[in-house]
Design a protein around this nucleic acid. Structure first.
Lengths: 335, 335
DNA sequence: CTGAAAGCGCTTACAG
DNA sequence: CTGAAAGCGCTTACAG
């Protein structure tokens, strides 16, 4: 109570108890042999006097930081996606349980400086990549260093530990569902081609079509849709071509599509069906309800973080983990 | 090239150059007197051999961590708000410029454990609170410790350094605008009462009414709107009462309101005007365009972080900083 | 079961 | 201008 909070050291404890620092250290960490009584004595003292170890000092001695880095896209529109927030929540939770903290490093375009600083300065024991790209600079960077890391998302690099949602099967399932409803002219509105997830979704879509015995694409497929103007043009084209159903690769694209359709007086699902390969808060309150794929992103983050912690502890872990999805059918695809 | 990256220490450099560790340290930090040539020699060597200092060790010696903590709400729906992401982006940017890293600690409800761990373990040199509450446990916690911190948002606690948007004047301006258009029956749909920002927005609204000589509230005021069901009920009431304009305290509430109105066949702005006290990506692509207040959240985060850095450097800083707003008038309030 | 000592990789008075 | 030494607050062989 007298000493200012946060200043007490292990030496103070040792002195007060008339024992050595070594013993105190052991009593706290639980490592090494130590008498039951002694340990109890130390334990009592430190809780009573609110001693908390200096993790930095411990880290230096152990060559550990008890920090992990989370690499996040620093681009404006991307950072707003709920996906990353929810991931972060899960990661933070899992990290906390293991007494780790998470440090964020924003990577914007070609600028890897934040990630570099964090690994070169040895401020973290491991890294989590929040997404994977076709041309993946952060991943390339990590592959050159000997620091444990896991990728949320998939990649072709075989030796990278990856934790992902099963996008391919999920998208296949949703596409199959639409095919089962009897629709054939099914358009696909896709996101950024440099995102691996875009490739996976496309693959799922194609697989469903192939299985249904359709030789070529059922409807036109678009990629790299970023703004509403593009959607506007595409919508005209689709309506003109008599499209029956529009599959949107993510919630943002879907929201924009719905907004454009409403403006054009096209009714969903009456005139046109719509579904989304990704669900979120954004779509939740939409009228009519939107058929979409549900993924638990927080759990994904947790899983990735647990994986990383196991790696940092020297355990062997599976290279590729897939998490399940949920297909939620609502009015937007009703016949 | 021979030595494994990230293992070189200051001693290695000293030895290779035949000088002392002290000198090397000085050459790197730039502190203390040192010969120009010597410094150059060291500088050349370390860039050539890719030496990077161990920041943990430096931190221990200096009793600094070069980390700051960002306290984020861990609640589901809240963490999805773009506000926090954009703040984080700004903070991360400003921190990086000063060679600091940002560590996140999620605070969920009553659970402050993540924040506690981070400060008790001395893993950060300062803390940023991403929002302020009426009943503010994280703030109370920080006030008890002697660690620099700044709050994004306002609080009644006079001695807390706070950086905020000028919500009161912004909301007053928007309300005035609507009054100028000639509307009188103006309803307010408010958010969580425990958020200080809710109080500020309400205050701005009231001030505008008072100034316009209206004794009592122009339209009904609601608080704690969290889901669409509530909005649904309120909408019926408002329509019944002949409300002319609905002011929504934030983008989420606004989006829900619009969705409900569309479903009910109420046309905006023809039948009813709508405006929002907060703008974001969510509202950007809405049809019709929504009159709203724009705030630059990334800049807010940057400002808060710079402030904290100054505090950590022992500088005096102003207790209360307000950032400007922008009123964007669009179709949703057109007469 | 316990302790003295060296070490983690830096910084910083102090002395020269 | 430069260096030897102590110190930051822990951990961990090594010895007893």
């Amino acid at each position: 109570m007298n000493e200012p909070m946060g200043k007490m050291t292990i030496s103070d404890v040792a002195e007060a108890l008339g024992i050595s620092k070594t013993t105190v250290s052991r009593a706290i960490s639980g490592k090494g042999r130590i008498g039951k009584e002694t340990r109890q004595k130390v334990q009592n003292y430190i809780t009573e006097h609110h001693y908390t170890p200096n993790v930095i000092a411990r880290g230096l001695a152990q060559s550990k930081t008890y920090n992990i880095a989370l690499v996040l896209p620093g681009d404006y529109y991307l950072s707003e996606l709920p996906f990353f927030q929810n991931c972060m929540l899960g990661i933070s939770r899992a990290a906390g349980e293991a007494d780790y903290d998470v440090l964020i490093s924003m990577v914007t375009g070609e600028d890897l400086s934040q990630l570099q600083r964090v690994v070169e300065y040895r401020k973290v024991d491991g890294v989590i990549l929040s997404r994977t790209l076709v041309e993946d600079q952060p991943l390339q960077f990590l592959m050159q260093h000997h620091l444990p890391y896991v990728a949320i998302g998939s990649t072709r690099e075989k030796n990278v530990v990856q934790v992902d949602h099963d996008h391919v099967n999920a998208c296949r399932a949703l596409t199959e569902h639409v095919l089962m409803q009897g629709f054939r002219r099914i358009a696909l509105l896709g996101g950024n081609c440099n995102h691996i997830v875009t490739q996976q979704r496309y693959k799922g879509y194609q697989e469903a079509l192939r299985q249904a015995g359709m030789k070529k694409e059922a409807g036109p497929v678009y990629f790299d849709i970023e703004d509403e103007v593009t959607v506007e043009k595409i919508a005209d084209e689709l309506i003109h071509r008599g499209t029956e159903c529009i599959l949107c690769m993510d919630d943002y694209i879907c929201l924009r599509t719905l907004s454009v359709l409403t403006r054009k007086g096209v009714r969903v699902p009456k005139d046109l069906k719509v579904a989304s390969f990704y669900n979120s808060q954004l779509l939740k309150n939409q009228t009519p309800g939107i058929t979409a794929l549900n993924f638990n992103t927080t759990e994904l983050g947790e899983a990735a973080c647990r994986m990383l912690i196991r790696m940092m502890n020297g355990e062997e872990v599976p290279k590729h983990t897939l998490q399940d999805y949920e297909l939620v059918v609502k009015e937007s695809t009703r016949v």
